[in-house]
């Protein structure tokens, strides 16, 4: 058999198999499986099937987000609000309407697009300044309270922890001790104005161990998360698509 014919036979058989499964398991389900396998095929090596699946995913995502953002933000937050304000002010003669303020956001949005034109690109710095300023102001208080004050408050607790019956809770006490040691040593590690030598260096070393343990725990959780996603896709293939598992 001519070797050039083999890929076409494989493709034809694949299409045939998918057509049979699409007829028995449903077209949408089979389409999902087709692209899942396409993305997984990259694990073997880069190939046109993977590239096609990836390109389609990127294209659909971009299209989905464009439509979603247009209808849920541009239309509902700007166009319809301004149209209603126009109706209220000019058609019904109701005077000023707060919804006119939406135009400020709209104008800032248009100014942001000016960076597409190099000669007047500087205009886009103004809306950017508004975003940075507003976000910084908004987050300053919230971060300070949630991630600063409340976290410090939770750390500065008595080392001796007692249970509901009034007896010493050894586990909670050790936990609190480790929390205080880990926090302080971690802070010492990030203090670079003094050389990490002697007792100071020893505490900094405990700090880096604390950080390594944290990164290890975080990595472990990340592995669990990625495995969960793989399990989800494999379950889709063997249960939803092929119906091999109930």
């Amino acid at each position: 058999m001519n070797k050039k014919v083999v890929p076409f036979i494989v493709i034809a058989l694949g299409i045939g198999l998918f057509a049979i499964l699409a007829a028995s398991r449903g077209f949408a389900v089979t389409l999902g499986a087709f692209f899942t396998i396409g993305i997984f095929s990259f694990l073997y090596k880069d190939n046109p099937y993977y590239k096609f699946s990836e390109a389609l995913f990127v294209g659909i995502s971009a299209g989905y987000w464009f439509v979603s953002l247009f209808w849920q933000q541009m239309y509902s937050k700007l166009f319809s609000q301004v149209a209603e304000a126009y109706q209220h002010t000019f058609v019904n003669g109701g005077g000023w309407d707060d919804r006119w303020m939406m135009l400020v956001g709209g104008v800032l949005g248009v100014m942001m697009l000016m960076r597409l034109f190099p000669k007047i690109g500087w205009i886009s710095r103004w809306p950017l300044a508004v975003i940075v300023g507003a976000t910084a102001g908004l987050y300053f208080i919230n971060y300070f309270v949630s991630n600063g004050i409340n976290q410090i408050g939770a750390t500065i607790a008595p080392l001796q922890q007692y249970g509901k019956d009034g007896s010493l809770d050894w586990w909670a006490s050790i936990s609190q001790f480790l929390l205080v040691v880990g926090t302080l040593s971690g802070l010492v590690y990030f203090y670079f104005s003094k050389e990490h030598k002697g007792a100071f260096g020893g505490v900094a070393k405990i700090g880096i161990w604390t950080l390594m343990l944290t990164f290890g725990a975080s990595f472990g959780y990340t592995v669990m998360s990625r495995m969960s996603l793989l399990i989800g896709r494999m379950d889709y293939l063997v249960s939803t698509w092929l119906g091999l598992v109930k």
């Binding site: 919230n142 971060y143 309270v145 949630s146 991630n147 409340n150 944290t214 725990a217 975080s218 959780y221 990340t222 669990m224 998360s225 969960s228």
Partner: peptide
């Protein structure tokens, strides 16, 4: 940050494992 600490909401969270730590 915005609901619990500002308005005292009682929050039970479910997060992905990446977020959890």
């Amino acid at each position: 940050q915005f609901a619990v600490d500002r308005f005292g909401v009682k929050l039970f969270g479910g997060a992905t494992a990446v977020q959890a730590p």
